[in-house]
């Protein structure tokens, strides 16, 4: 029995699709993340640089948290099965359309048979690709976000990364197409990240606190969607082994070796190391674009300051 809605849909053309021709190191379906299930041990997931995913969506007139593709490092190539409007934002991964260079933050049309290809990072680490209306796939617990470790989300629902031959179908049709306003550049050699200081900071030694906020930290090569290690002076905390407790996004935890680990979207839901605090959501997005070797400076902020900036960012997409 056809409903009025399905009749309307039938009058429009079927949403267009792309096929994966070549994969890179890591390309994942991500949206804003999975919420309301961390008490079951299910982590949040979601785009590391949620601001760039938001801009890619904004360029197509999508909701800012619609699912897109997070392309880390580059390498991915996609062919249009039908002519499709797309948008990219975030890192400059040397994207081309049939070999012709594209801007890093742009909405464009990929004609049927044309290939969108990503090369390697020129600025930042992760580019975000948006499709009209998001990506058509079956959400799990309200989200398409891929968490490989948990075997959840993604096109297959099992946490798989994009594979050659995978088909990405748009969930709808492009809304109002927009141009990109000027946005802050990708982090280069040094970046200042806002840290909401937490109550446990009182248990760190004075000299360690001075070091934490007055010295540069290096992004280590041990960095993934679970967390990013920093190297620098060893931080000392009087709290020993703690009883495991819930971990917020961006938590800056300090294990016994004194080298901080910033816990990101795919982190475990509970853990037992003392924390300096947690990066603001905007700082988490920035960290998602920092290559190993980048120097990080931590800048203490209050929850109020971090919230004001966060709400200002959301307001840009209204």
């Amino acid at each position: 029995m056809a409903t009025r809605t399905s009749t309307q849909n039938a009058m429009q053309t079927r949403p267009a699709s792309l096929v994966v021709e070549r994969t890179g190191p890591l390309a994942l379906v991500e949206d804003a993340g999975r919420f309301g299930c961390r008490h079951l041990g299910v982590t949040q997931g979601g785009a590391l640089d949620w601001i760039s995913l938001g801009w890619a969506n904004w360029l197509l007139g999508n909701a800012p948290d619609a699912a897109g593709i997070e392309i880390a490092i580059g390498g991915l190539a996609l062919k249009a099965e039908q002519t499709i409007r797309l948008a990219i934002a975030g890192a400059d991964l040397g994207a081309t359309r049939d070999g012709e260079p594209l801007d890093a933050n742009v909405s464009f049309t990929l004609e049927q048979g044309q290939v969108l290809a990503f090369d390697q990072p020129r600025a930042g680490l992760r580019a975000y690709l948006a499709l009209p209306g998001g990506i058509d796939a079956e959400p799990f617990m309200g989200s398409l976000s891929t968490v490989a470790r948990e075997q959840l989300g993604g096109l297959d629902g099992r946490g798989g990364m994009l594979q050659v031959g995978d088909r990405l179908s748009a969930a709808g049709h492009a809304g109002e197409i927009r141009d990109m306003p000027s946005v802050p550049p990708m982090p280069r050699d040094e970046v200042v990240l806002a840290l909401v200081t937490g109550a446990q900071i009182a248990h760190f030694e004075g000299a360690s606190l001075f070091a934490a906020f007055n010295q540069g930290w290096q992004v280590d090569s041990r960095a993934d969607r679970m967390g990013v290690r920093l190297t620098g002076p060893a931080l000392r905390c009087q709290l020993g082994g703690m009883i495991s407790e819930g971990i917020p996004l961006g938590a800056v935890q300090v294990p016994p070796d004194g080298q901080p680990i910033i816990l990101l979207n795919d982190r475990q839901t509970i853990g037992g190391y003392p924390r300096l605090g947690a990066l603001s959501p905007i700082a988490c997005a920035q960290l998602g674009q920092c290559a190993p070797g980048t120097t990080i400076r931590l800048s203490p902020v209050t929850p109020h300051q971090a919230r004001t900036r966060y709400l200002r960012q959301l307001a840009l997409w209204r």
Binding site: I243, S244, E245, G246, I247, T269
Partner: peptide, 17 residues
């Protein structure tokens, strides 16, 4: 948004909007 109980604590993640 999320409430994570664990042994001795509960982590409250609330909606800042």
């Amino acid at each position: 948004i999320d409430l994570v109980p664990s042994y001795t604590t509960l982590l409250v993640h609330y909606d800042v909007s």
